[in-house]
């Protein structure tokens, strides 16, 4: 058995893994796991990842979870251009720095934005108070500013003159609030120009394909009561 990737393109780390594998011509079998239908909570998937999260990778009898670990594994196992994760020690350290920073910063805020703005009210049928939503959006704003000031600065990409794993992980996060209807690039010309560069580097078609699902998040039909009940505690744990 070759490489298998368990993904749901609704999930931002899954989109990063998907784009990376496709862009670099890495052959894989896609194993779709539909989160909004609770497929990640099945016994079958628990065999792959007992933590019941996507993305997950299987390569023969080696199983791996966590998007950053998966991206780095693919980078090392397959021949991919150096700029994704440079050999140069300092350049690479800056990619590692971003990948460590984003977990509790951009990732957290983009996820909360999607849930508070769309997934709770529309999909789960649970209203979110305007105060809560405002606080979430304010935190997102602070994080976007950090992304621009501390990481992008005046460079073409987050860690230097070329695209790297950092940019891929960042853009797939930012498309979460975009999917929720937030104009994250408005009034941020630097970030907007960066987005164009990342899209161009990835390829417009692949970028569009990977983001089709999230851009339709607002039109998801409401969850049925059983699914909602199953998902609720896990969602609450994930977005705190």
């Amino acid at each position: 058995m070759g490489l298998e990737l368990y993904l749901d393109l609704l999930s931002q780390p899954c989109r990063a893994v998907y784009i990376f594998a496709k862009k670099n011509g890495i052959p894989f079998e896609l194993r779709p796991v539909e989160l909004i239908r609770g497929q990640h909570l099945s016994d079958a998937f628990a065999q792959v990842n007992p933590l019941k999260k996507v993305p997950a990778l299987r390569d023969g009898d080696f199983t791996l979870t966590e998007s950053v670990a998966i991206l780095l594994y693919l980078t090392r196992k397959y021949k991919v251009p150096d700029y994704w994760y440079p050999q140069d020690l300092q350049a690479r350290a800056l990619v590692d720095e971003y990948l460590a920073w984003q977990h509790t910063a951009l990732r957290r805020n983009c996820l909360r934005t999607l849930w508070h703005k769309v997934m709770f009210p529309v999909f789960m049928g649970e209203p979110v108070s305007p105060q809560m939503l405002a606080a979430t959006l304010a935190e997102l704003d602070v994080t976007l500013q950090l992304l621009e000031d501390k990481f992008l600065q005046n460079k073409a990409f987050l860690t230097g003159p070329h695209i790297s794993l950092a940019d891929l992980v960042a853009i797939t996060e930012l498309m979460h609030p975009v999917g929720a209807g937030c104009q994250v690039f408005e009034g941020r010309p630097k970030l907007a120009a960066w987005r164009q560069r990342v899209e161009a580097a990835v390829g417009k078609d692949l970028f569009r394909e990977a983001h089709e699902v999230i851009l339709k998040a607002k039109d998801f039909p409401p969850a049925d009561p059983t699914t909602k009940q199953k998902l609720m505690p896990r969602v609450l744990a994930m977005i705190q």
């Binding site: 933590l51 080696f62 791996l64 979870t65 950053v68 670990a69 090392r76 509790t104």
Partner: peptide, 21 residues
């Protein structure tokens, strides 16, 4: 080693989500 290093990164990713905070 490819797989051992992957395990380290897998742990560090989970650590950021579930241990650190």
């Amino acid at each position: 080693d490819l797989q051992t290093r992957a395990r380290i990164h897998e742990y560090l990713g989970w650590h950021a989500d579930c241990i650190r905070g």
